[in-house]
Amino acid sequence: MNPLIERLTAKGVVVTEYENRGEQAREEWKNCFVLIEERSQYRPYLWEYLVEEMDGCLVGKEADVALRHTAKWKCLLFFEHSNDVLELELSQAQTFVRKDLTVAAGDYADVYIVDPAYTWTYVIPHEADWGPYFLIKSTMKRG
């Protein structure tokens, strides 16, 4: 995790680390970004819910562009398998790219970013051929 924090702080991001909040963040993410009818279906990774025919979800470079254009002063970054949560203060940050947010493997490989109110999310899966994904809660609908 330290290399991730170092990369972010080098870009001017103020990082506050919280331990033991990952489960809460994942549950809130699921409540906000997984349709009710899908919640009973098991998926090994949360990001797989976005893959299942979700209209309104941007993928790849479109997702990267959407993240850059989203009004964001603070956001939360959490992971699929870690209980660590990072609060990112972005008001003085330089532009960062996807690789600045990723960790190669392990508990930190799947990255989830949300605004504090969970109105949008940006997800970087550990699978190189998938994502990233960007979804605004108000645009969620089934295709």
Rank of each mutant, 00 (worst) to 15 (best):
R26H: 04
R26N: 02
E28V: 10
E28M: 12
W29Y: 10
K30R: 09
C32L: 06
F33N: 00
F33Y: 04
L35I: 01
L35Y: 03
E37G: 03
E37P: 05
S40W: 04
Y42C: 11
R43D: 00
L46M: 06
L46T: 12
L46C: 08
W47I: 08
E48A: 09
E48R: 13
L50N: 00
L50M: 12
E52N: 02
E52L: 00
E53Y: 14
M54F: 06
D55W: 05
C57R: 06
L58C: 06
K61V: 15
A63R: 07
V65G: 05
A66P: 05
A71K: 13
W73D: 15
C75Q: 04
L76F: 14
F79Q: 02
D84C: 11
L86V: 06
L88K: 10
L88N: 05
L90C: 12
Q92N: 11
Q92M: 12
Q92A: 14
V97N: 11
D100K: 10
L101F: 10
T102Q: 10
V103Q: 14
A104K: 09
A104V: 11
A105R: 13
G106V: 05
D110Q: 09
D110A: 02
Y112V: 13
Y112P: 02
I113D: 06
V114D: 06
P116C: 08
P116T: 02
Y118C: 02
W120P: 03
Y122G: 03
P125C: 06
H126W: 01
H126N: 06
